[in-house]
Simulated scan of single mutants.
Amino acid sequence: MAAIELPPGVALFERGWLSSNNLLLRDPQGIGPTALVDSGYCTHAVQTLALLQQALGGAPLERLLNTHLHSDHCGGNAALQQHYPQLHTAIPPGQAEAVRDWDDDALSYAPTGQLCPRFGIDGLLQPGQEIVLGAGRWQVHAAPGHDPHAVLLFEPAWGLLVAGDALWQNGFGVVFPELEGESAFAEVGASLDLIERLAPRLVIPGHGSAFDDVGPALDRARRRLEGFVAAPRKHALYAAKVLLKFKLLELQSIAEAELLAWAQRTPYFQTLHARHFADAGAIDAWGGSLVEDLLRSGAAAREGPLLLNR
């Protein structure tokens, strides 16, 4: 497959699955502000900063934007703000108060059992707004579904879409409102329809490589969505395994008993078990079955009492 060519001044830091991708936007003419879209997970913050420093040399980073506030997309915000004191940070509307008060329940960090150091904000990414970043003029579009407050960034002259977790080459992110009993599958479909109307030529997903086969990717996402709508329990099982794998990615190795104890006290696992898997036995037995699924799939390995990330 031929390498995807990005517009001048656009650099993609494709990250592993614990962190979201980071998109660096610079203006070769030196007029538009230098910006980074999404900052990865907090345990990768040193690497995120190193990637930026290597790309920028001694130049400053002026803007930081988050497509949404899940921990793998904004966990590096605090470190970047500390390193670049004049950094202007903008987030989607809807959670500004939760950030200012640092309500880690409302921000999903406590319910998911994930980490995110406290950061500040300076502005909002309002849907319908157009902003200059690097050499591009970017439209902000609401993209609820995976996260009710998420936004897309679209540069129409380039046909370049920053999709966050609304569209990957092979699907989209866990639909978190559905885990809480709120309807959101329809919003996922509406966001896919929006992407189709924008007709991007190139998509930067929150995870995975940039891709230009946008039509087939939308078809795959819609088929995946249809499967989840027809079988919500299938989506719930997928979500539970994603959350468990995320913690294993974060820690790399942990005693199996400790991982299961973490799952039992993590609110999202409690909710998923109560809503969808109460018939699978007690929550500890259900958690054990999830671990076995990860082992069978090759996503984890067992070494004595330890579980290892694979």
Rank of each mutant, 00 (worst) to 15 (best):
G120Q: 14
Q129C: 07
W102C: 05
G136H: 07
A143V: 03
P85G: 05
P85M: 04
G94L: 11
V140A: 01
H146Y: 13
H146R: 04
Q169T: 08
L107C: 11
L153V: 07
R118T: 04
E130H: 14
Q139V: 05
Q95F: 07
L161D: 10
W168P: 00
L87M: 12
P127T: 13
G145C: 05
Q129S: 09
E155R: 08
V132T: 15
Q126R: 15
P127Q: 10
D101E: 15
W158Q: 15
D105S: 09
Q169V: 03
A96G: 14
Q95R: 15
V151F: 00
L160R: 02
L152Y: 01
H149N: 13
V132K: 06
H146V: 12
V162C: 12
P117T: 11
R118C: 05
T89R: 07
P85H: 04
E130Q: 12
H149I: 05
L87P: 11
A157R: 12
I91H: 04
P93A: 14
P127A: 13
L107M: 13
G145L: 09
W102P: 01
V132Q: 12
E155P: 00
T89P: 01
L124G: 08
A157P: 02
C116M: 13
E130F: 02
A142Y: 01
P92M: 00
W158R: 12
D105A: 13
Q86D: 14
G136F: 05
P111T: 10
Y109L: 11
P156T: 02
G164H: 06
L153T: 05
A150N: 02
H149D: 12
D105V: 15
L115C: 10
Y109M: 14
R100F: 01
Q139F: 02
H146A: 05
P117I: 14
Q139M: 04
P85R: 02
E155Q: 14
G113F: 06
P92D: 00
S108E: 13
I121K: 05
E97I: 12
H88E: 09
A143G: 07
A166W: 08
G94D: 09
D104P: 01
A106V: 10
T112H: 15
L152F: 03
R137L: 12
P85A: 05
P156S: 10
G113R: 07
L160I: 06
H146I: 02
S108D: 11
W158P: 00
P111A: 10
L87S: 13
A135S: 14
W168G: 08
A98V: 09
L161A: 09
Q95K: 15
Q129N: 08
Q95V: 03
P111V: 10
L152I: 02
Q114E: 14
H88D: 06
Q114V: 11
D165S: 12
A143E: 04
Q169N: 12
G120M: 03
T112K: 12
W168Y: 15
G128N: 09
L167D: 04
L133T: 11
G164I: 08
L153E: 07
V162H: 06
P148H: 12
Q129L: 12
L167R: 02
C116P: 03
W168D: 05
D101P: 00
I131H: 01
G134P: 03
I131D: 00
